[in-house]
Amino acid sequence: MEQNLSLYHIFNTVAEAGNISHAAKELYISQPAISKAVTRLEQNLETKLFVRSSRGVTLTDSGKMLYEQTNAAFKHLKQAEDTIKKNKKLGTGSLKIGVSTTLCKYVLMPYLEKFIKLHPHVKISISCQSTYQTLNLIQNHKVDIGLVGESGRLENLVFAPIGMVEDGFVATHDYLKNLKKRHPEAASNPFEYANLMLLDQHNVSRRYIDEYIRGNELSTGQMLTGHILEVSSMDLLIEFAKIGLGIACVITDFVKKELKEGSLTTIPLSLPIQKREIGFTYLREYTANDALEAFISFCRKISTP
């Protein structure tokens, strides 16, 4: 079939032109080369395709049947070429992004807003779940790229950091004041008596905090002896903290407004929690995708100081 493709192209051009000399001019090859190609195709198919005369060529019944198919095939190929060129010009395509709800709201949204203005024809889908689930989706080719916190599980993946985040414990002034009224000892260590609100143990942020607690002699036992409320969303942690439900461990970058206006306050720690990186990650050997290429290039540019 591959050997015959050029022959079919020549045949189709001759059939449309109705004349070998006209077809030769259109294809920029000699008339003898055209005649030789037609003869070869006829030999391959073991049938006569044209009746030759001084006025040109006429299709035989077999030639007519073959022309119906080649004409349709080359029209489809032309349409495909035109569509590809149009898509390339418009910058169309699809992009699947995996991200946690929190990072989507506070970090990804500004990136998407700017990217969409530059590439309005790209179809974008967002899959919101934990970092570990996002990494699995990338490995299984279910999403193209993910926005995650650095987790150490980046085999076969490229991690492109875009910034640092800092974890901390926050609560309302009223909650802390009432906690001290109930437990005067809470003035020196509120964690022992507070309702401590954390992300569930499947979350990367929670595991990072657990490692911090275990790795530092930060009254570890006392911090974990109070009542612990686990939730799956940092947004819920922030909202629970704002209504005075307890002390929440959150990414403090995401509550700057609340901290500035005083609706929340940070709980001082004797040993600060080290900042950690967040960034986009994708397969080191990913499937060619114009939209993904454009997004990676865009993220690199926007993340460059």
Score class of each variant (00 low, 15 high):
residue 7 L to W: 02
residue 8 Y to C: 03
residue 9 H to L: 09
residue 10 I to G: 05
residue 14 V to Y: 14
residue 20 I to D: 05
residue 24 A to D: 03
residue 40 R to H: 13
residue 43 Q to C: 04
residue 44 N to H: 13
residue 55 R to P: 01
residue 68 E to C: 04
residue 68 E to W: 00
residue 73 A to H: 07
residue 79 Q to N: 14
residue 85 K to W: 02
residue 85 K to Y: 08
residue 87 N to Y: 15
residue 90 L to S: 03
residue 107 V to N: 01
residue 108 L to S: 05
residue 109 M to N: 06
residue 112 L to W: 03
residue 126 I to G: 04
residue 128 C to S: 11
residue 130 S to E: 07
residue 138 I to A: 10
residue 139 Q to K: 13
residue 140 N to S: 15
residue 147 L to G: 06
residue 150 E to I: 11
residue 152 G to N: 09
residue 158 V to C: 09
residue 179 L to G: 06
residue 181 K to I: 10
residue 181 K to W: 02
residue 185 E to I: 08
residue 191 F to V: 02
residue 195 N to Q: 12
residue 198 L to F: 09
residue 198 L to S: 15
residue 214 R to V: 14
residue 225 T to S: 13
residue 227 H to T: 15
residue 231 V to A: 07
residue 233 S to F: 10
residue 238 I to T: 15
residue 240 F to T: 13
residue 243 I to Y: 13
residue 249 C to S: 11
residue 254 F to D: 05
residue 260 K to L: 11
residue 260 K to H: 15
residue 263 S to G: 06
residue 268 P to Q: 06
residue 270 S to D: 14
residue 274 Q to G: 12
residue 275 K to V: 05
residue 276 R to S: 13
residue 281 T to K: 01
residue 295 F to C: 09
residue 296 I to G: 02
residue 302 I to V: 13
residue 305 P to R: 12
